[in-house]
Design a protein around this nucleic acid. Structure first.
Lengths: 136, 136
DNA sequence: GTGTAACCTAACGTTAACGTCAACGTAAGG
DNA sequence: CCTTACGTTGACGTTAACGTTAGGTTACAC
């Protein structure tokens, strides 16, 4: 398996474990930490230790990215934004942001269909042009 | 309406028409032209004239962007890539790229559902935390 | 204990996708 | 004809999201 410890389902990962699994660089993971998107704990020797929870969050971050969200947006969605407001405000802000994003996601589902239609249209034209070339 | 001419469905647009409609800057449209994603014709006085076709393409570009595709990727999808290969090769490359992207889009549809689930999970936790705060 | 592979921070470099001038040409109303 | 809004091409500036050294530390196999 990976570099685990006691197998009682408290699996942990090193930075390169996760980097390899999700095909990103270690630098990327450190960068996400700088931006407060992840906050792994550390070993006595100051090396990062990622839990299953960190891993799940990374998954979410990368998923968000694949849909064009900026890291700042993702930070707000998952409730990891500015520290200079009290927790209640913080939670409410994140909640509101999340609702907004959920609505966006539903809209995007429809847009994906449209994009698919667009591409199918492009394909038809390309195929047609190819057939014309065939005949000459 | 917009700055049209003969209403026989050969509608055209100025650069700021399109910029306003799609809420992008004129600079953005010029940039897309540099990158060969758009190629509007010109007036006698060298000003850009966008047709309905250009408008449709812009729509596609922006749609692609909203899903995290880079401009280079979009260029390949819609068949506007390098000029230094013959048309047949060009078409086939674009076609192949398009197929790939169509497959991706289908995968993304599934991913969107997962992202939605993720966010619903985040929401549950935020709500729970808020309720805990309420009680103290 | 000693190598060496993996880790750390700090800091500067890079690329995509525009923003922002500057300096000038053009379209249309009065 | 003149103004004023809109358009044009450079060319340099900016920001996000990392890449890439450099210079050192930690973990683990031997």
């Amino acid at each position: 398996m990976t570099s685990d410890r006691e197998s009682t389902d408290n699996q942990t990962y090193t930075i390169s474990d996760l980097a390899a699994e999700f095909d990103v660089s270690a630098r990327t993971l450190r960068f996400y930490e700088e931006k407060r998107l992840l906050s792994p704990s550390r070993t006595k020797g100051n090396q990062r230790v990622y839990t299953r929870r960190d891993r799940a969050r990374l998954k979410l971050i990368l998923r968000g990215k694949r849909f064009g969200y900026s890291l700042d947006e993702i930070a707000e969605m998952i409730g990891m934004t500015d520290v200079d407001m009290d927790e209640r405000q913080q939670l409410e802000k994140s909640l509101a942001y999340g609702e907004k994003k959920l609505a966006e996601i539903r809209a995007r589902k429809e847009e994906l269909d449209l994009l698919e239609q667009d591409l199918l249209g492009v394909r038809r034209k390309l195929v047609k042009r190819l057939e014309e070339l065939q005949q000459s």
